[in-house]
Nucleic acid binder design. Structure first.
Lengths: 229, 229
DNA sequence: GGCGACAACATTGTTAGACAAGTGTACGAG
DNA sequence: CTCGTACACTTGTCTAACAATGTTGTCGCC
């Protein structure tokens, strides 16, 4: 009784199946939430000590984060939380447009609104009502993920997931959710869902593009105002 | 004298900077060239022994291949060369269309033909003349890679690279280059380049889609004739 | 003869410790 | 002031070992 394996590890609770994956999850979280600020150096030993694991385990987690673009690294040097440039933001969002526009075009062609996306949409409306900005930003990304997932294309989901990972980091670094206009987000999502339900592919694609480019512009604006170079 | 570190490793020569990367390269090659047939099991120890490295080194190489979809794996089991299904082929190519169509649309918008792609195109014409099917298949993929690279978008290149890796495997498994019509490939590439030079985005996109879907259909046809289920 | 429990095996998961090799830096010599 | 060397730090790689897990095969029982 009393959950036998409740022995918790130093800093954060690690509860996933694989140890490297648990470290990966924890580290990823602390990167996108800006606990580790951009530019911060993460040595293998430091990570190993922080989570109470061996260096090879930490190494594996770091390697995965590097391969996903959430850390940068030069050979024989500590991994580093990247500071995203203006070009990075534009690259991220222009590729996101490509993927999601295509996804929504296909979705609308079938004229069927995926239930998972609908559920997330309702959750988002709730967050708009309570004006919970942080939760709203998270749910917003979730909504887009669900739309892509509804495609049942493993490769599309994987590529989109890669992009979204870096976009999370991006949003964290620019603190853009403070500028978010909750009602607009909800309204635009509704428009996209309506276009899908109506089977209007061109409209769904157009609204998706506008929605994402709007987010990008807001991000860039904040970015410019913060780093006047 | 006499290059001091010329001690060669068992099967294949490994000459890259990092040992895991060298194993990765060699293993990848032997997978896409069907030296390791689909369904074959690759244990960490076997790989380690084959290339004369320690198990952790082999593990890293395997992990990377798994993360790129060139190997599949269940926990506590040997990695396995995946056998691509009909659905996989369709998924691969429909996503490839999304990416390359977008890339060519942008390229044509600038109306500038990338020199690297032109160089590869000339190389391909040479292979058509000498009727070298294997080299032609390789150069064909290279041509598409160059078109995407010309975009100068790190994320687009990375996503496209992932797709192309699996497509290489796909082409190897179906032995599709035997069905390739060299003159057609060259002709279609020329058409795409012309559309880009003319700054005709819609045409470039349309030709690209047709070119890729043609390749897909040829692949599927061969696939169906080989596995009549 | 068929079926289930148990035991042996194979494989990966994770750790520890060690040494080599590469990189940047600070310090000292010229 | 400049250059080169030595040192400290970090990663790269290996060996060895044990734990955890999944598979397989065998044996006895029904």
């Amino acid at each position: 009784m009393l959950s036998p394996s409740a022995r918790s590890l130093p800093s954060t609770a690690l509860k996933t199946t694989s140890l490297p994956e648990a470290v990966y999850d924890a580290l990823r979280e602390s990167i996108v939430t800006m606990v580790d600020r951009p530019g911060a150096l993460l040595t293998e030993s430091a990570v190993a000590e922080r989570y109470g694991v061996a260096r090879p385990t930490a190494k594996a987690a770091l390697q995965r984060l590097v391969s996903e673009g959430l850390l940068s690294r030069r050979a024989h040097h500590a991994a580093q939380v990247p500071e995203l440039s203006r070009d990075d933001i534009q690259d991220l969002y222009s590729n996101r447009v490509i993927l999601e526009e295509a996804a929504l075009r296909n979705l609308a062609a079938d004229a069927v609104v995926p239930v998972a996306a609908l559920a997330v949409h309702r959750e988002l409306l709730e967050h708009v009502r309570t004006d919970d900005r942080a939760a709203l930003a998270r749910t917003d990304l979730d909504f887009h993920r669900q739309l892509v997932l509804a495609q049942h294309s493993p490769r599309l989901a994987r590529m989109h997931g890669l992009l979204m990972g870096e976009i999370e980091l991006c949003i964290g670094q620019v603190q853009s959710h403070q500028l978010l206009r909750p009602a607009d987000v909800a309204h635009q999502h509704q428009g996209i869902l309506d276009a899908v339900a109506a089977g209007d592919s061109p409209l769904a694609a157009k609204l998706t593009r506008a929605h994402i480019e709007g987010a990008r512009d807001r991000l860039l604006q904040k970015y410019d105002s913060e780093s006047p170079a």
